[in-house]
């Protein structure tokens, strides 16, 4: 498989505030992530992991530097164009699940397809299929409040998958879960990466979780300190 770069950060800085109180959340970061990689980002609190994820996810614009996503220069895009990019190529999994309350799992998973103007019947099929992938098709009509944390996170993963994204970004996806459930979730991500070839970038505080990834990036003070790739396990 010829590996192609999906994420190319070039001398990226993200500065919050100005002058004395300016915080350099990202400090001249260079990073390339290839298609099909499963990357974990670790680092102390405040080291800029979430900021990096937001930039990669086209939710935030860097203060300086170049960012190419799938070959597209993101810096020149408008807010709406970035929305289109997210809709088409990106899936998000958050620490707090971020499902719509009082909305069934199925409707939650359908949401990205609504914005892609997919017809209803097709949308429901795709959503059911995504729920099946995360093993929750019987819970399709349950509200988030009727689901456990692990189940909610699986719904969130289904929502990230449903539009067939190129990259799934997961910022501390197991941060709110117990160890057993965390392992379930991380194994699901690993499975999606290995069997479906999904590119996954994940922030985590837990070494155990990071071990599932094949590449580990260590951040300190807005810079990448270490970047280790381990050979793909058989």
């Amino acid at each position: 498989m010829a590996e192609t770069a999906v994420v190319e950060l070039e001398d990226i800085s993200r500065v919050y505030g100005e002058g004395e109180i300016a915080v350099r959340a990202l400090d001249h970061v260079d990073l390339t992530i290839e298609s099909g990689e499963f990357t974990a980002i670790m680092g102390p609190s405040g080291s800029g992991k979430s900021t990096a994820m937001n930039v990669i996810g086209c939710l935030d614009s860097p203060t300086s530097g170049n960012y190419r996503f799938c070959g597209v220069e993101v810096g020149t895009l408008t807010r709406d164009q970035r929305a289109l990019l997210r809709r088409q190529y990106l899936g998000f999994v958050f620490q707090g699940y971020n499902l719509l309350p009082r909305t069934s799992a199925l409707a939650n998973v359908e949401l990205p397809l609504i914005y892609k103007s997919v017809p209803r019947a097709e949308r429901q099929l795709a959503a059911l299929e995504a729920l099946r992938k995360v093993g929750l098709e019987e819970r399709a009509h349950h509200d988030p409040s009727e689901l456990s944390g692990g189940q909610q996170q699986r719904v969130a993963i289904a929502r990230a998958l449903v539009s067939n994204p190129k990259v799934v970004l997961a910022d501390e996806p197991t941060g709110n879960l117990d160890t057993k459930t965390s392992v379930e979730i991380i194994e699901m991500l690993q499975h999606l990466n290995r069997d479906e070839g999904l590119t996954i970038i994940m922030v985590t505080h837990e070494q155990d979780m990071a071990d599932y990834a094949e590449r580990l990036i260590w951040m300190v003070d807005g810079r990448i300190e270490r970047d280790d790739r381990k050979p793909r396990a058989a």
Binding site: D80, A83, R86, R87, F92, L111, K116
Partner: peptide
């Protein structure tokens, strides 16, 4: 606000 954030993140445009 959170719901709006979710919608925007998964690709809703401002006018939507």
């Amino acid at each position: 606000t959170r719901e709006i954030g979710i919608r925007l993140a998964i690709g809703a445009q401002a006018r939507q």
